[in-house]
Design a protein around this nucleic acid. Sequence first.
DNA 1: TCGTGGAGCAACATTACCTCA
DNA 2: CCTGAGGTAATGTTGCTCCAC
Length: 249
Amino acid sequence: MFQSSERNVDVGSFLRGIDVNRDPSRAVVDVEEDAGVSSPNSTVSSVMSEKRSERELVAAGGGRVVEDNDAGRSLSSLDGCGSEDEDGGGNGDDGSRKKLRLSKEQALVLEETFKQHNTLNPKQKMALAKQLNLRTRQVEVWFQNRRARTKLKQTEVDCEYLKRCCENLTDENRRLQKEVSELRALKLSPHLYNHMKPPTTLTMCPSCERTSSSLSSVAPPVMASSSPMGSMSPWAAIPLQQRPAAGSH
DNA sequence: TCGTGGAGCAACATTACCTCA
DNA sequence: CCTGAGGTAATGTTGCTCCAC
């Protein structure tokens, strides 16, 4: 697996410091969820593999694979987790993971819940899982993926916005450059220059009595980085209320 | 009080399956 | 029927926090 080394230098990192989901009752809840997989695993991998096999059993044994995903089925007809505790023993033999498709009703409820809070504490997770006849792990995974999708969408929106900003700045730069060359041309033609009124757009610098828009100050604007997505936060110079937001999910 | 190991969690990258044009 | 693209559920890894010891 290829992971970037700067993986954790992201927006989410500092948010993790605020562990809004931390719930004192968590331990009890999680023990409940992982009932039967409570062996003291020494490594994460072993935990994962055990949890994985548990999931596979449910996914396969529950039979909630795509072929039975007709739009009309009711939530209560989803048996898989109803069998939260039962293992079903399905086709765990071939090791293939069958992918279930959430019903429209389930997706709707999950979406609505996500709108209210994009993370769930263990109690909420369990309640939601129970309501939807899903496993808590499935709810958890759905929220993880949903957060990822939201972030991706927001990134795309940000990117588009920055692209437009860049284009606007380029245009502005071009305009200013043109203005500079025009002013230079005027300056090189004293007979014309003397008879002209000073440009009304130029303001006097009160302290030095020189025009604030002297030629040197009209150099092309240089951004903090050559790229609009430079190392510095691209939003640093953009008022918060002007930042675009990804559409509702 | 401090260090340590385990557990749980979220973020992230990736994989694998499914649908649909 | 085949196929490639896109969507998304699921998996694996990593780092962080909390807590018991």
